[in-house]
Design a protein around this nucleic acid. Structure first.
Length: 233
DNA sequence: CCATTAATTTAGT
DNA sequence: ACTAAATTAATGG
């Protein structure tokens, strides 16, 4: 059976999930993207991009959560950040190199759009406002991540766990109660501690009344104290 | 399709 | 590293 793809051409013009950057594109520019992009869905745990592969397309995350990570030679995983919807994956790799430096895997079921890299590049060159928005998002991202990593490198396990909890509450979910989108192992991989230490500290925080934990659901009970722990390491 | 059970994954010590 | 619990896959009706 032959699938008729002609009926599934995207209409980016009508897309309700446009990025800040795409929102300011002209109608004809959106049409260019429409004709050179494809919407695809992935299941939870699917790998979207393997580090080392060529960047032939830009991947725009329409819905869901994705982890950005690298796998160390010693078989240990380092999670760089959790990526929320409405962001482009791997922009630093796109402009800095022709290969992807990081891997991406779906933490939830996700919806993405593959956009042809040449079209994307052309828009960046031709539309300054578009390029500006892209630059803003890349810069915000790297500032945020650098701060996270720099403060992480100075902190002990308590501070790191507190940081991670605050990271989820403030940046990822924007609420004090949330469900971790992954295992404790991955939680530990995000902050660079062992799985054992991570769970130990989480439970300690719970006993001290800072958090309540039910499985993967974490509720912050004492944000002030948590903040203090985060700051003092 | 649903219910049981087997296998794999995860959390905590 | 080990165990218990939980989640997921496979099987049979």
């Amino acid at each position: 059976m032959i699938t008729d793809f002609s009926k599934t051409i995207n209409s980016c013009t009508d897309c309700k999930d446009k990025s800040c950057a795409a929102a300011i594109l002209h109608p004809d520019e959106l049409t260019q993207i429409s004709q050179n992009s494809k919407e695809t869905s992935f299941r939870k745990k699917d790998i979207l991009v393997q580090a080392g592969s060529m960047t032939s397309n830009i991947i725009y995350l329409k819905s869901g959560l994705v982890k950005e990570y690298v796998t160390n030679p010693d078989n240990r995983e380092q999670i760089l950040q959790i990526v929320r919807k409405y962001t482009y994956l791997g922009l630093p790799s796109l402009f800095g190199d022709r290969v992807n430096h990081y891997s991406y895997a779906a933490l939830t079921d996700v919806m993405v759009c593959y956009i042809d890299i040449n079209v994307f590049n052309r828009l960046v060159r031709e539309n300054g406002n578009f390029a500006y928005e892209i630059l803003v998002s890349v810069s915000r991202d790297s500032l945020q991540n650098f701060h996270r990593f720099m403060s992480q490198s100075q902190k002990k396990v308590y501070g790191r766990v507190a940081d991670a909890v605050i990271y989820f509450a403030k940046i990822i979910f924007e609420q004090d109660s949330f469900e971790l989108p992954f295992t404790r192992q991955e939680f530990a991989d995000l902050i660079g501690v062992s799985r054992e230490s991570a769970t130990r500290v989480l439970l300690k925080f719970e006993h001290e009344g800072l958090l309540s934990i039910q499985g993967r659901i974490i509720t912050i009970k004492n944000p002030v104290m948590l903040d203090k722990i985060s700051r003092n390491g």
